[in-house]
């Protein structure tokens, strides 16, 4: 395309000079290329609307330098029309080989006010980056909330490379951008790992945690995250006959993964649990939260049915304060054995 941007009005009223053509939605040779303004959206409601009221706004299209038709704006409309069995759509054809900046300006203006999902944002940013310079992109920020900060931009560009199912999860807020970016960095393994983790049906937060831990662990262990995840799955399916010392019960994917990634924290938590069990609380009293490994705060709940009952409970609690095991919980020491931590390849 020519380097000099063309000036044309941004009014969405069709300028006379753009001819309205019947654009083929299918082509024998290739799939129709569409700029990624719609991803992970259901075209059915729009198809129903088109069926009832007709297509209210024509599409915008351009012929790219290779002679390929590109739908600049109207991806969801294309999907809806295809659903209705249409083979062509009325399209304003940008005939003068406009500059990409103009194409994007028009497309963003045509989608003005639209709330983009995270996958669309990532894909649009990736497409913009491949066609425009940074200052050109910066000039479009008024038309879309573009992530131009370095870190956010990097995350979006990485996430745009996610395999389809993960990208779909990103679109539907079942995967957050930071986790998606980390996952995408695994390249071909990303799809396998995603599929494996989805088998455990984790929550958004859990998914984020697992990906983070697996990638950290893969760095420490110098093994692929997918490989590690598969081994965890296999271990859970065929648990070893011996019980791992000091690591507590690891009967779940997360439990086992955590004990691998955070052996000392797991050890301390197991130790805390043992100490709590060996310093039993009186009846009607419970620790609703364990002392954390951050600031040791805990919450004690006392059930009572009157002042006299409360006095009795408090009396029963007193011996607990002097219980050495209970006191030890607040004095847990960091395990001295450094082997597990200090094998990092990057320090030396």
């Amino acid at each position: 395309m020519p380097k000099q941007p063309l000036k044309f009005p941004l009014s969405l009223e069709p300028p006379d000079k753009w001819p309205l053509v019947d654009w083929p939605l299918e082509d024998d040779g290739f799939k129709l290329k569409v700029l990624p303004f719609s991803f992970g959206r259901d075209p059915e409601p729009l198809a129903r609307s088109i069926q009832k009221q007709g297509l209210l706004r024509p599409l915008w299209g351009v012929i790219d330098p290779e002679g390929r038709p590109v739908i600049v704006s109207g991806g969801l409309r294309v999907a809806a029309l295809k659903l209705l069995g249409q083979t062509t759509a009325p399209t304003y054809l940008l005939t003068q080989d406009p500059h990409w900046l103009d194409v994007w300006t028009l497309a963003l203006a045509d989608n003005l006010g639209k709330t983009y999902n995270p996958a669309e944002k990532a894909l649009i940013l990736a497409a913009l980056s491949s066609t425009l310079t940074d200052p050109e992109m910066a000039s479009l920020t008024g038309l879309m909330d573009l992530p131009i900060g370095k870190a956010l931009k990097e995350r979006n560009l990485a996430a745009a490379k996610l395999p389809y199912p993960a990208l779909l999860a990103l679109a539907k807020d079942k995967l957050d951008l930071a986790t998606g970016a980390r996952l995408a960095q695994l390249g071909p393994d990303a799809l396998g790992l995603w599929t494996l983790l989805e088998g455990y049906n984790p929550s958004l937060q859990t998914r984020r945690k697992w990906v983070d831990w697996l990638i950290d662990l893969s760095r420490l262990e110098k093994r692929a995250p997918l490989d590690l995840a598969q081994e965890i799955g296999a271990t859970l399916a065929n648990p070893p006959s011996f019980k791992a010392p000091n690591l507590g019960p690891a009967k779940t994917f997360e439990g086992l993964l955590k004990s691998w990634r955070f052996p000392k924290v797991t050890f301390l938590e197991a130790q805390r649990l043992r100490l709590l069990k060996s310093a039993p609380l009186p009846p009607g009293v419970s620790l609703t939260t364990d002392p954390s490994l951050e600031d040791l705060k805990a919450t004690l709940t006392i059930q009572f049915s009157g002042p006299d009952d409360l006095a009795a409970r408090l009396k029963e609690l007193k011996p607990l304060l002097n219980n050495p095991n209970f006191q030890k919980i607040w004095k847990l020491k960091w395990p001295e054995d450094e082997d597990l931590f200090f094998n990092s390849p990057t320090l030396h």
Binding site: P263, V265, L268, L293, S344
Partner: peptide, 29 residues
């Protein structure tokens, strides 16, 4: 993610817990 891409990983290889200010810190012990 951004820091890891540019910085050595051993800083992040240790064991961390999520603290009350939303940051990751070494465990209290």
């Amino acid at each position: 993610t951004h820091m890891l891409a540019h910085n050595p990983s051993f800083l992040f290889d240790g064991e961390f817990i999520l603290a009350h200010d939303g940051k990751y810190r070494y465990p209290r012990p």
